[in-house]
């Protein structure tokens, strides 16, 4: 797995993984921009969700914390950005920073609870925390707009000069740019000693302690980082969509993010990206027909992935690719 190459297998001679990640995100963004100029709002939404799935990968794929409540971090940050804009903070970059900060703080707070447990109690706590946040967002209508959503805010122009156009071009390009930077940064972090240690913790907690590592603070730290990434996604959604709804904190959002992650391959940032993309393209193609067919097909796809490619599509693709290569001399 080239993307996971450790100290011994420096991934590629010419491009560092970070630069490769940065360029690939831009290349994908450019393709989307050129081919689907009328669907930029939809593509921007995908980018925003990609942050959530990457964020989920950090705790689930790299630390082994299975969570069904991760949308809480995404949604809280989205509401924070929306409210900041409502209070007059119009600069989109400031709003993103607020989203990242609020996400990080929420991540640290929930991580501090969730990282104390393992297995079923941990999973149930992630669900409960997610549902609790969802219930609160519904209740605190003065902050969230309740079920109507929060939309009475305006976002100023980017860098104080470039206004968001009605076709969503600026919004999309800004989203892609931020995704490219964050993705490259994350690729770097997972190659760092900290990233290596979290993978080790996921593999075997007992052994990790036996090399002298403190588990809990590392998991909480990763939760904080994950919260920041989810927060950027949430804030980005608030900025580009102009509305923050309860769907951002919903169980369905958490569950579908997990589905996207495992589809692409947990424990691999490229997998998170691929899973997000595949899921949305699939959704776009099918769900227009009939929402229930969409559910049947997603269900069938999940079952097939578990049975035939249990480590995700990207890993399955790598295996298939190497088999094909081995066959042809």
């Amino acid at each position: 797995m080239a993307t996971r190459a450790g100290p011994s297998g420096i991934a590629s001679g010419l491009l560092s993984p970070e630069l490769l990640g940065f360029l690939v995100v831009w290349a994908l963004g450019t393709v989307g921009y050129v081919l689907f100029p009328d669907d930029l709002a939809f593509l921007t939404r995908i980018v925003s969700i990609a942050f959530l799935v990457l964020s989920l990968d950090l705790v689930t794929g790299y630390c082994g914390v299975a969570t069904l409540g991760h949308a809480a971090l995404f949604g809280i940050a989205a509401y924070a950005a929306g409210n900041a804009a409502r209070a007059g903070w119009a600069d989109p970059l400031v709003l993103l920073a607020i989203g990242a900060l609020v996400g990080a703080v929420s991540g640290l707070a929930t991580g501090a609870l969730i990282a104390r447990f393992r297995g079923l109690p941990q999973l149930v706590l992630t669900i409960a925390v997610g549902q609790l946040v969802a219930a609160l967002c519904n209740k605190l209508g003065w902050l969230t707009g309740g079920s109507d959503g929060l939309s009475d805010y305006t976002v100023g122009p980017l860098f104080g000069r470039i206004a968001f156009d009605m076709y969503g071009r600026v919004a999309f390009l800004m989203s892609v740019a931020i995704l490219a930077v964050v993705f490259a940064l994350l690729l770097r972090i997972v190659r760092s000693p900290f990233g290596l240690l979290t993978r080790a913790i996921k593999d075997d907690t007992v052994k990790a302690r036996m090399i002298g590592a403190s588990i809990y603070p590392r998991l909480v730290a990763m939760y904080g980082l994950s919260g920041a990434v989810a927060g950027i996604g949430g804030a980005l959604g608030a900025i580009t969509a102009g509305v923050v709804g309860l769907d951002g904190v919903s169980f369905e959002r958490s569950a579908s993010a997990l589905v996207m992650l495992v589809l692409g391959g947990a424990g691999n940032l490229w997998g998170a990206l691929a899973g997000t993309l595949v899921f949305h393209v699939f959704e776009h193609l099918v769900s227009t027909a009939n929402p229930f067919h969409w559910m049947s097909l997603v269900g069938a796809m999940l079952i097939l992935v578990v049975v035939f490619a249990p480590r995700g599509l990207s890993f399955g693709a790598i295996v298939l690719w190497s088999k094909l290569r081995a066959r042809s001399p």
Binding site: T60, A66, L68, G119, L123, A255, L258, V259, V262, A266, F292, H293, W294, M295, S296, L297, V298, G299, A300, M301, L302, I303, V305, V306, V307, P310
Partner: peptide, 29 residues
């Protein structure tokens, strides 16, 4: 049956979510 020997929580979640979605889709169809 595949899950009984498999302790990976993620696989269990994914498969049973998949089954749920499939049942919802088919039941409503």
């Amino acid at each position: 049956r595949r899950l009984y020997a498999n302790s990976d929580a993620l696989t269990q979640l994914l498969l049973t979510i998949g089954i749920t979605f499939l049942i919802i889709g088919v039941a409503n169809y």
